[in-house]
Design a protein around this nucleic acid. Structure first.
Lengths: 193, 193, 193, 193
DNA sequence: AATGAATGAGATTTCATTCAT
DNA sequence: TATGAATGAAATCTCATTCAT
C-alpha cells in the first residue's frame, strides 16, 4: 500500500528522498518551530534545496505534508489496533503513541500552524476528522467493554494528552520532563473504570 | 509603586507609548506568534518603528518585556487577592484570570519562546518563580481552608488551566471555543473538595 | 503639479529616490530588457535593494510604474503642445519625442511586457488610451490645418514611428542606427500634404 | 540535401526529437520570450530535459538553432521561388510568409536576442546575410520586371513587414490583430508600380 | 523625541545544467 | 538513448535594525 498515493509514482530514490525530507522537516519543526529555514531542512534530509523544492513547491506545501503525514501515521496506527487483544489495549497504545516525544512535540509545534490553516485545506480537514474519528471509535470500544470510564470523549482525551507534551515555561526544563511522564501515567490510570 | 522599575522614569507621553507598544505587541503575538514583524507591532501601537526601537533596543528585549508584563499582571492580581473573602475565592479568580482569552492566548503563544529563553534571563526567571509562588500560595490557602482538594499542586493547576486555552487543530474553531469554556467550569468544579 | 499623486506625499529625499529608481530602471530595461535583476536596478539608482522594494513591492509594480511614467511623460508633452505655433509643429515634436533614443528604446523594450499586462491593468489601460487620444487629437489638428495628409490616423502614425526604433537583426548595428534616423525624416516628410 | 548540416547524421527518432524541440521552442519563445524555462521547452516538445540537453548543450545553442532554422526556412522559401511565374509573385509570397503569425511573432520575439548575439556568431551572420541577400534579389527581380516600385530596397521592405507583426501596446489586442492584416495588404498594394 | 526612509543580511524560490537510473 | 531527479548559483523578496529629517 502506498503512503502518499497521488502523482505518477516516484522513482525509488526520489521516494526515499521525499521520506527523508518529511522526516527531517518533522524533527526540525519540533525543535525549532515551523519557521525553520528551508535550507536547514534540506540539509537535515541530506539533499540540496533544489530537491526540496522539486518535491514541495513552497514552504506551505511542505509543512502541510508533514502535518498530513503525522495524521496518516496516527490513522494507520488506529487502524492497526483492530488486532489489539482488547479495546482497552488499543486505547492505551494510542495514548502512548500520542505521548511519544517525536509525535507529541511535533504536534505541539504544529498546533498554531494547523489552527491557522486547517480550515482552508480540505484534505487536511478530512485527515484530522478521520483521525479524530478512529480515535473516538477506539475510545468507544474500550468503553463498551466496560474497561474505560464513560464520562470522557475521544476529543477530551486528546486534549488531555496534549498536557503531556506541553512544557510550562514557569517550570524549569527537567521539572517539565518529569511532569510529562507522570501525567501520561495519571491519565492512563484515570481512564480506567 | 513603579510598574516598570529601572530606567530614569519616562516622560508621560513616552510612558504611554511604552504601554501601547507592550499591549499591541501582546495582541499581535497572540494572533500571529512571536515572529510578527516589528513594523506591524509599531503600527498596531500607533507609533513609528523608530519609536519602538527607542523604547526596546531589539526584538528580544521587547518580547521579554511583553512576557514580563504578563507575569507582573498575574503577580499583582495574586497580590490583590489578599482581600478576597476566602482563599477559595482567590483561587477561582486567579483561574478565571488565566483563562481569559487575552491572557490565555498570549501565554500559549509565548510558551515556546519562554521555554527557549527563560533560563538565560535572571529577571524573567525571578518573575516566573514569583508568579508560580504566589499562585501556589493561593492554592495552599484554599486547601488549608478545606475548600479545595489537596492532591493537586499549584503547578498541576496551572497546567490544567492551559487546557482551557489550547486549541486542538483536530477540532473546528467553534468546537474549540465551546470546549474551552466548558473546561474552565469543569476545572473549577473539580477543584472543590 | 505632482507627477505621481496618490499616497501620502513622500519625504523630499524619498521622492528623489523614487525618481532615480524609475529613471534608472528605464535605462536598464532599455539596455537589457524587463528581466534585469532588481539588484542592478537598485545599484543604478544608487540605493539598496531594500529601498527599491519599499517603494515598489515587487518587480511587476516597478515595471508598471516605469511604463506608466513613460506614458505620463508623453501625455504631458502632448498637453504642452497647446502653445505650439501650429498643429503641424505639435505633431513633429511628438514624433521626434517618440523617436528619441531614450524613449524609443524603452518603449520597444516594454512592448512585450505591455502586450502581456496592459489589458489586466485599469490604470495602465487608462494611460495608454489617454496618450493615444491626445496623440490622435494632435494629428487631427494638423490635418484640420491642412498641413498633414489625411489618410493616416494617429495610431497608424504611432506604428510607423516604431519602425524608427526597432533594430533589424538582419542588418549590422550601424546600418540600423543610420536607418533609424533616415526613417524618422522620411516619416515626417511623408506626412506633409 | 541536409537541413541541419554538421554532425554525424542522427538516428531517425533522434532527428524527430530535434525537430520537435526546435518547433516547440519556437512556439514558446513566441509566446513568452527567449527566457522561457528549458524545462517548459522540453515539455512542449514532449521530451525530458535530458534529451533536450543531449541535443543542445545549453540554452544559447538552442535559441541559436531556433533562429538559424527560421532563417533557413526563409532561404529555402526564397530558393523555391525560382519557379514562381513572375518575380512579383515571388515577392508577394515572401512578404506573406514573413507576415504569417507563427513566423512574424517568432522573429519579433527573437529580435532583441539576435541584436545581442548575431555579431559574435559567424554562422548566424552568414545565414542572415544569405537571407537578406535572396530577399533583396527577389525584390530586384520584381523591380526589373517593372512590377514593383524601385525606391525601396529589400531591407526597407523587411522593416516594413515588421510593422505587420508588432503589436502596439497602446491598442487593445483585437485592434492589433485587425491592424496587422490591414497593414499587410497596404504594404503589398503599396509596392506595386 | 518621533518618524519613517534606507540598508543589507538572510530567507525563499527559480532554473540552467549535470548525472544517476 | 531517454528520462527526470538532484544540484547549487543566482534571483526575488522580507524584515530587523540604523539613521537622516
Amino acid at each position: 500500500m502506498e503512503t502518499t498515493a497521488r502523482a505518477p509514482r516516484l522513482r525509488a530514490d526520489a521516494q526515499r528522498n521525499r521520506e527523508r525530507i518529511i522526516a527531517g522537516a518533522g524533527e526540525l519543526i519540533s525543535e525549532r518551530g515551523p519557521d525553520v529555514p528551508m535550507e536547514d531542512i534540506a540539509q537535515r534530509a541530506g539533499v540540496g534545496v533544489g530537491t526540496l523544492y522539486r518535491r514541495f513547491p513552497d514552504r506551505h506545501s511542505l509543512i502541510r505534508e508533514v502535518a498530513a503525514e503525522m495524521f496518516r501515521r496516527g490513522i494507520a496506527l488506529a487502524e492497526a489496533q483492530f488486532d489489539a487483544p482488547t479495546g482497552w489495549d488499543a486505547v492505551v497504545r494510542l495514548v502512548r503513541f500520542c505521548g511519544e516525544p517525536g509525535l507529541g512535540e511535533l504536534s505541539a509545534a504544529l498546533r498554531p500552524w494547523l489552527a491557522e490553516h486547517r480550515d482552508g485545506d480540505a484534505e487536511l480537514r478530512g485527515l484530522t476528522m478521520d483521525w479524530l474519528d478512529r480515535f473516538e471509535r477506539a475510545v468507544r470500544d474500550a468503553q463498551d467493554e466496560g474497561a474505560m470510564r464513560t464520562d470522557i470523549t475521544g476529543s477530551d482525551l486528546l486534549r488531555l494528552i496534549s498536557l503531556t507534551t506541553c512544557r510550562m515555561p514557569e517550570l524549569p526544563a527537567d521539572a517539565n520532563r518529569a511532569a510529562s511522564a507522570r501525567y501520561l501515567e495519571i491519565i492512563i490510570d484515570g481512564l480506567r473504570t
